[in-house]
Design a protein around this nucleic acid. Structure first.
Lengths: 225, 225
DNA sequence: AATGTTCTTATTGGATCCAATAATATCGTT
DNA sequence: AACGATATTATTGGATCCAATAAGAACATT
């Protein structure tokens, strides 16, 4: 991996994981020496992180880490809810393309398969992760509104804020299954409202689905940063 | 102004104005020579524009301009509508702080003053621009949800997509007055719903207000890029 | 002693140089 | 003549160097 990408990913991970505490000052020179690279990749990385809202400018004295707080995560989840809500509203407001309906049902079938039996293993969480991501991406894509995707691209760097992040308890598979099953049922409800051509219903269902990620005390399953 | 800012603003303006047609390839070297600067400010500017969605990477052959299309502008306006709708929903869902109520009324009073008389001059459009921006900023700020601001910061670089952009006919002041007055009345309706503690009403009013920018045939009044 | 001014220093922004890489064109071979 | 391999070139990414600027400290003056 190239130095620029490496520094960017490393800084991102350190900030969202709290390894770099919120408010910590991040200077170009010190960071460059720390990573053993030139100041240039650090500079570009900081610019990108600034766009993502993970660092804030400190006048002329460099940047400050803006680590995610419980409040900022809740805020981002709420934003995701309304944006994905808009996506499904748009879809439900228009005639449903047969190809889309087919893909949607096929996607849901993947989820159905996961909960067909009573057994639930750790790998199923990974499988649900893939299915969940596919479901949300499908809707975002079908809306045809690229501004939604652009607006969402920042939230996805915060843990728990992206659609691909799920709050599950890895140590209690029964609880995890229950939790993810509820999310899957949300998906069905949203899909039903879409296929029935009910924009309001689809939107409010999607909003509530987003807020379901706000279960306290759960360890986040964060996708690839 | 520093070279970096200058190049960034110039490129942004050229792309959104169509001076650089959609799809045009933008290389670092050529652009740097064109502006008489080093490649470095061009590079940072292109990275920023990429984040804003105004240019897209072309593999290793530089970037391509992604000029705004009517569709992308409509999409961005719709996104702005739901995000600002969320902001006012949040405000209306909570107890109203007296200080906020005061500021809100003071802000609206600025607008009232603009339409008190029957005369309307070109300068009044500028004044409305300031008032309009203050109104939207006040609500965004009062919501306390910084994720909304972050998500919106990209849209605001597209003409007509930002809250500070207004579609007015500079040659027909009477028409402009009518148009802006309608927007001002929208503000009153939103404010009333907020102060009355009606989240649903406030949100839907705000959404409709955003869509009011979608009047075809009007010249955009774009704020400082 | 307090405050204003100046000097030093830390830090960011820009420019130039060097390296890596991929696309393209040309030449050789079949 | 066509296809493939190689070499050249165009272009981006990174490193180092230089300039501008602002913050902070120290000193002088009132």
């Amino acid at each position: 991996m190239k130095p620029g990408q490496r520094v960017l990913f490393a800084l991102r991970k350190m900030i969202v994981s709290g390894e770099i505490p919120d408010g910590t000052r991040i200077a170009e020179i010190g960071t460059a020496e720390r990573f053993g690279v030139s100041r240039m990749p650090v500079r570009t990385a900081l610019r990108t992180l600034e766009q993502e809202g993970l660092v804030a400018r400190l006048g002329r004295r460099g940047y400050a880490a803006r680590g995610p707080t419980p409040t900022s995560i809740e805020d981002a989840i709420e934003v995701r809810g309304v944006l994905e809500g808009l996506a499904v509203r748009i879809i439900a407001s228009r005639p449903i393309a047969p190809a889309f309906a087919r893909k949607l049902k096929a996607c849901l079938a993947q989820g159905d398969a996961l909960f067909a039996g009573d057994d639930f293993v750790a790998d199923d969480i990974d499988r649900f992760y893939s299915y969940n991501l596919a479901f949300h991406d499908l809707l975002l894509d079908a809306s045809g509104n690229s501004a939604i995707t652009v607006a969402l691209s920042r939230n996805n760097h915060l843990p728990l804020a992206s659609a691909g992040a799920l709050a599950v308890d890895w140590d209690d598979l029964a609880s995890a299954r229950h939790h993810l099953h509820a999310a899957h049922q949300d998906h069905h409800a949203v899909a039903a409202a879409i296929l029935a051509g009910q924009p309001d219903e689809a939107e409010s269902r999607m909003r509530r689905h987003a807020r379901a990620a706000l279960i306290p005390g759960m360890m986040p399953l964060v996708g690839p940063l």
